[in-house]
């Protein structure tokens, strides 16, 4: 939701990035204020996940130009774990499996690390158990998932739910949800989006990366951006997503070229 007294959380200016010497991001501009929900849509391979991972600090990507501030600070001055502790959260498109590391242990360590950063109390294993079970109820997750390895053998949808569980635990300032809706069944989509909506408030912000307008029926965006070939080439309101659903992506590029030529 757009608030009058919102603060700028994320300011991206002319961001360029390469992977293996190939330029993927070619000058991205984006401003996200507290309270807002942004949707980024765009063709496969246009650079959406790359953008998310660059923000989170994946070291396979090299930033070659532009700037990003997060709550006024230079984001690139922070290590990936510092960005996370500062409240930047990425729900991965493909959450990785970490066999042998108990999910409960992992979740508690992540939770306590962020709590410590915020000067709040850490929880011991027993306290955390109660706490996390409450959060799991919100997402209608079976507590058995606590005893399994992190994402180990989880189905696609279960992994996505586990991502949102982490979001619920860490209460980020800015959450980037990279195709969290893909792989979720209809009930799960309702449950997960309901969870996300409960976490949204006027102090935080969400960036949704999605291919489906349907998601935006559950989580209402304030802005919809279209990414093509490493740039955001069009920004609109919720209605833009409906246009994209009806007409595909080709017309956006044409419109942009026309505008540029005029």
């Amino acid at each position: 939701m757009i608030y009058q007294d919102s603060k700028t959380l994320l300011e991206v200016r002319g961001l360029r990035a390469t992977v293996n010497g190939i330029e993927i991001l070619k000058g991205i501009d984006l401003t996200v204020r507290s309270g807002e929900v942004h949707a980024i849509m765009g063709t496969n391979g246009s650079g959406k996940s790359t953008f998310a991972k660059v923000l989170a600090g994946h070291n396979a990507y090299k930033v070659t130009g532009g700037s990003v501030t997060f709550e006024g600070n230079d984001l690139f001055g922070l290590e990936p774990e510092e960005r996370a502790r500062a409240g930047l959260f990425l729900a991965f498109q493909y959450p990785i499996e970490i066999p042998g590391v108990a999910n409960s242990h992992f979740l508690r360590l992540a939770y306590n690390t962020v709590q410590a950063q915020r000067g709040r109390d850490e929880l011991d294993p027993l306290e955390f158990e109660d706490f996390v079970r409450e959060k799991m109820k919100l997402l209608e997750m079976n507590p058995d998932f606590l005893d399994r390895g992190v994402n180990e053998g989880f189905s696609g949808g279960e992994k996505k739910r586990n991502e949102i569980l982490q979001m619920a635990l860490l209460e980020p300032r800015l959450a980037i949800l990279d195709e969290t809706d893909s792989g979720l069944d209809i009930d799960a989509l309702r449950i997960v989006t309901n969870g996300v909506n409960q976490l949204a408030n006027k102090d935080n912000a969400i960036i949704l990366v999605t291919h489906y307008q349907r998601l935006l029926n559950y989580i209402e965006p304030d802005y919809v951006h279209v990414m093509t070939a490493g740039r955001i080439i069009k920004t609109g309101g919720k209605a833009l997503a409906l246009d994209l659903e009806a007409r595909g992506y080709d017309w956006v590029g044409v419109e942009q070229r026309d505008a540029a030529g005029a």
Binding site: I98, V101, H105, L109, A110, L170
Partner: peptide, 19 residues
């Protein structure tokens, strides 16, 4: 895997130790 830990605030040393 290490990036996944880092994205949750857990540094590399601790991540390797956990794994």
């Amino acid at each position: 895997q290490l990036f996944y830990f880092a994205q949750r605030g857990i540094g590399n040393e601790e991540a390797v130790s956990m794994i």
